[in-house]
Amino acid sequence: MKFIYQTWWKILAVVLVFYTLIAGLLFHVPTLPILHETIRNLYFHVPMWMAMFSVFFISVVFSIMYLNTGKEEYDLASVECVNTGMMFFVLGLVTGMMWAKYTWGEYWSNDPKQNSAAIAFLLYCAYVVLRNSIDEEQKRGKISSIYNIFAFPIMVVLIMVLPRMTDSLHPGNGGNPAFGKMDLDNRMRVVLYPAFIGWALIGVWIASIRYRIRLIEHKKNTIN
C-alpha cells in the first residue's frame, strides 16, 4: 500500500494524459466518412472504459485479498475502487452517447453495446445497494467482496463479449473489427495507448484519495 503515497506515478499519469490532450487534437487521423474529425473522440472516450476496467480489476484483487486476510482496509480499498470505476462508467456512457448522436443519429439507439453497458452499470449499482443494506461490518465485507468477484467477469462478458456476437453499430462488433486497419492506423496508436495508461493511472489516483479519506473516517468511527 506504500505505492499510493508516492508521487512519481501521479506525475507520469499527468504527463501522459497531457500529451494525449495535445497530440490527440493535432496529430494525423485517417479521413473516414461519417466520422470525420470525431474520430479523435477515440482518444477520450475509450480511455474512460480502460480506466474503469483497471479500477474494477484492482477492486476484485482487493476483494480477494480481503477474503484471504480479513483486513478491513482491503475491503475499504475495494469499495472505493468500485466507486471511482462507476464515475468512469458514467463518463464512458455519456461520451459514447454524445458520439453516437452525431454518428449513429441517436443518443440511445438500443444498440446491443449500449444496452449491455447499461445492464452492467445496474450490476454495479446493485453492488452499492447490497453493500449499504448490511449493517454488520464483517458480513458486509464478505458478502460484498464475493458479489464483486462475480460481478467483474459478468461485466466483462456483458460489455466485451455479448455485443460482439450480434450485430452492433459499435466498432468491434458483429464482424467489424475494432482497432483494425479500418478505424485505427499506427499513427493513432501512438496517442491511444499512452491515453489508456494515463487515464488508468488517474483512475487509480482518484481511488487512492477516496480510500485514504475512507480510512481516516473509519479510524475516527472505531475510536469513538
Binding site: 501521479k10 499527468v14 494524459v17 497531457f18 490532450l21 495535445i22 487534437l25 489516483w205 482518484i206 484519495i209
Partner: peptide
Amino acid sequence: ITTIAIVFIGIIIYLFSID
C-alpha cells in the same frame, strides 16, 4: 488546445492540493 490544457492543469493542481 490551450483551453483544454488550462482546464486539465487546473484539475490536476486541485487533485495535488487534495493529496
